[in-house]
Write a protein that binds this DNA or RNA. Structure first.
Lengths: 183, 183
DNA sequence: TGAGCATACCTCGGCGCCGATGTATTTTCC
DNA sequence: GGAAAATACATCGGCGCCGAGGTATGCTCA
């Protein structure tokens, strides 16, 4: 996921590692902080893979800064990851939020809508956290107040998100439709 | 997290690895499936650390099953992890839901309430996913519909969970109070 | 009877994450 | 003028995760 987020931020603007660290911390850091020892090797991998270009500039505040920039290869990689995200980006909320944070970089409204539809489909398939054999248990079936909480919270989130998904997919399809008419 | 979940399920009943796998898949599998190559080494580590006891029984359906059982050491480890969970169990929703799934094993309502209060405090400190410099951006500040979605959904979840937390903490404190009066 | 499937367990290599540690520069403040 | 803090980058060892592959058992059904 780190790779994806780095590419996402670099799509917007050239950044040095430290600034990248700040932005990633803002996006995912309250959940799980990013360690230096994770970020710099990740950058190095991306540079070695020529997805990211690096050139050194004099530091304005402290040590010389290594400015990072998305290469054309990196750009197309990012766009592919946005257009055809791996399953975990659809199912895991942390991944999903990162995906949403950069989905605007996909210019085509239809492609954006397609991604939202995958999430919609995932959220629509009934699933519980707890089962009695094969039977999914709902909040009412449980004595445990904490497990009931899990289900209540998950259900509320799911409801909100489904609403948002349907609304936004609608808007995107309107936009796509109008664009098609214009052509 | 896997270690924690294994201990949690074994607190309830003796299980063999396969059954454990089924339950873990139900709890966290729709988000991120558990691979065999992750589960069995994890069990092995726990057995080596004498947190879990293993003894082989004839398989009722297929191959001989390795029945797993929580040792007294494993039990106290689990209870400590519940009573004083690491920060990531408070901040990351996936971890937090796992914690909630087993929080009932902590018998003391005051200790349960203390854990919920940590989550309450975390959710109460304002945080955004996106910043303009130091200023956290709210949904209204954003043009990007997807980023706005992230904030809307996160906010709705947060609201629901805060309500549930307050309600449940109240109930636990009532219970604790009545128990204290009885003594 | 034997092919195929579900059950059940295990190992290994590759790779990524993380904490600890190190280095260097510049700003701040006493 | 010097200590401390913030900025900025990097490496390394340990360890956990994961996919791929392997072994074995027992049930089902043709």
């Amino acid at each position: 996921m780190l790779d994806f987020v780095i590419l996402g931020f670099l799509y917007d603007s050239r950044l040095h590692g430290w600034e990248l660290r700040t932005r990633i911390s803002a996006l995912t850091g309250h959940v799980r902080p990013v360690a230096d020892g994770t970020l710099y090797p990740a950058i190095k991998r991306l540079v070695d893979a020529t997805l990211v270009l690096k050139n050194i500039e004099a530091g304005s505040i402290a040590a010389p800064r290594h400015m990072l920039e998305l290469s054309p290869v990196g750009e197309s990689r990012l766009l592919r990851m946005l257009r055809e995200p791996e399953e975990v980006y659809i199912t895991d909320e942390n991944h999903w939020f990162c995906l949403l944070a950069f989905l605007r970089h996909l210019e085509d409204p239809a492609a954006q809508a397609a991604v939202l539809k995958r999430r919609l489909k995932f959220l629509s398939t009934p699933a519980s956290f707890f089962y009695d054999g094969d039977k999914p248990l709902s909040a009412e079936d449980l004595d445990d107040p904490f497990r009931r909480g899990v289900l209540e919270i998950a259900r509320a989130t799911s409801r909100t998100e489904l609403q948002w998904l349907k609304k936004t997919i609608g808007e995107l399809e309107d936009k796509g439709g109008r664009a098609a008419v214009r052509n």
